[in-house]
Design a protein around this nucleic acid. Structure first.
Length: 139
DNA sequence: GCCAACGTTGGC
DNA sequence: GCCAACGTTGGC
């Protein structure tokens, strides 16, 4: 099983929106970036995803789960774009802010820090563990 | 709201 | 195939 991080602007589609979708989850359509798409193509059902709020909140707020492997993005006619479906799994006990992540030397290699513009990115197992720990989770 | 950084596009 | 110009993203 692999770990990932996906971003969303909470004003557009936030954690509570994903929670509201329940077990049916949400098709993560609309991504038009090759790296992000390739990351989604590499996902398998059961992979875990940090859900990150960008721009207005800047924090990892919850853990989501991949519930459907990459398939054609229904928001595009172009076969170039695929996406996965995810559902909310559990909210972090406390949100882990970008500032905290930047402050923690164990997380200095996170793509979130190095390339903040990539909207779907892999997370190393050790990084996953540390962020869970900061978020009050067993990990 | 600003602007730096990044990815994409298109002219050459 | 290079690179300047452009649009978008996202931290501040």
């Amino acid at each position: 099983m692999a770990f990932w991080l996906m971003k969303s602007e909470p004003d557009e589609f936030g954690w509570h929106d994903l929670v509201a979708r329940g077990a049916k989850g949400e098709e993560w359509g609309g991504v038009r970036n090759y790296q992000a798409r390739n990351n989604m193509r590499a996902m398998v059902v059961g992979d875990l995803v940090f859900f990150y709020h960008s721009r207005s909140e800047l924090a990892v707020v919850g853990v989501a789960e991949v519930i459907a492997p990459a398939h054609p993005d229904s928001t595009s006619d172009d076969p170039l774009w695929d996406c996965v479906d995810i559902r909310a799994k559990v909210a972090l006990v406390r949100a882990v802010t970008l500032a905290e992540i930047k402050d923690d030397p164990r997380l200095s290699d996170m793509i979130l820090v190095k390339n903040p513009r990539l909207s779907v990115q892999p997370v190393m197992p050790e990084e996953w563990r540390v962020v869970c720990e900061l978020g009050g989770m067993a990990g």
